[in-house]
Design a protein around this nucleic acid. Structure first.
Length: 275
DNA sequence: TCCCAGGATTCAT
DNA sequence: ATGAATCATGGG
């Protein structure tokens, strides 16, 4: 267990922001997170953040995973700007981070996300992990399942995938797993590409369109110029930006702006709550 | 019963 | 090149 003081970091907001599906509340102000074969629990009290890992594992993995080397305070100027809606969104989501998640996991997760709701997306992913991932035991004695790698998913039949209630996305996952296993898209190479090139490669995958490719670019490859337009963003644009949203104005961090808006629309406004 | 959920593919012009 | 129909599943 280690203690940190990290400004503009809220594990609750990150958890609720829907970019990472493998996290869950684990107590008061406490969340568990599974990523890249690892498990950690995070608790926040006042200005203090506690990580249930060693200093070494924090430095070597979680620091990067949660993008803790970046100063998100500089994006809080958005909260003072003349764009009223964006100001409120930035204030509301001031603890959000753009994570550095696993590329393969994001590809499959966001293929599943299409025309789907967050609750069911999480269920689908957990089922995939339970059936085809690896069982591990955390330091605190919690059993969890890792996300199945390319090789593991490439061995799964389309019928087995349908058994996970993935619906029509079963075929997309089936095709994509085999496509990548065959080496028709080189994920390691994609990691070294610029945004435009990486997106173009990802669009070759079955079940990956504009929006999903942008989510993968943003949440796995950390291309902050990616600005995924989904139903929420579309609705906000229709309601508050009838002349179009000025994405270019936020060159270099449009993806962060997108997350503030997405989260504000999802959790900030009173509306028939689902959760 | 219909509508929606972090859309993409397929098929029609 | 653009637009509608279709694609499963679960919750409201």
């Amino acid at each position: 267990m280690i203690k940190k003081e990290i400004p503009n970091f809220s594990i609750k907001q990150i958890s609720e922001s829907g970019q990472c599906f493998r996290q869950n509340p684990a107590g008061e102000n406490r969340y568990s997170v599974i990523a890249c074969g690892r498990y950690v629990e995070i608790e926040q009290k006042g200005k203090e953040t506690f990580f249930s890992c060693t200093e070494e594992e924090y430095e070597e993995f979680w620091h990067t995973y949660f993008d803790l080397g970046r100063d998100y305070g500089i994006y809080m100027v958005l909260a003072e700007g003349e764009d009223d809606y964006l100001s409120r969104a930035a204030r509301f989501g001031s603890g959000i981070r753009i994570l550095n998640q696993d590329l393969w996991e994001m590809i499959i997760s966001f293929i599943i996300s299409q025309q789907n709701n967050i609750k069911r997306i999480k269920r689908n992913i957990e089922e995939l992990c339970r059936l085809f991932g690896e069982k591990k035991c955390s330091r605190e004695g919690i059993w969890y399942d890792t996300f199945p790698d390319v090789h593991a998913l490439a061995k799964v039949s389309e019928e087995e995938l349908r058994g996970c209630n993935l619906g029509y996305r079963s075929r997309y996952i089936y095709e994509t797993a085999r496509f990548v296993e065959r080496g028709e898209v080189d994920l390691e190479a994609v990691k070294g590409m610029e945004y435009a090139e990486a997106k173009k490669e990802l669009l070759k995958l079955c079940g990956v369109g504009e929006k999903v490719a942008d989510c993968i670019c943003l949440f796995a490859l950390h291309h902050l110029d990616a600005f995924p337009v989904d139903t929420h963003i579309r609705q906000v644009m229709d309601n508050y930006y009838p002349k179009g949203f000025p994405v270019k104005k936020y060159a270099g961090y449009a993806g962060i702006v997108q997350q503030y808006i997405f989260y504000y629309d999802l959790k900030g406004t009173e509306r028939p709550s689902i959760s």
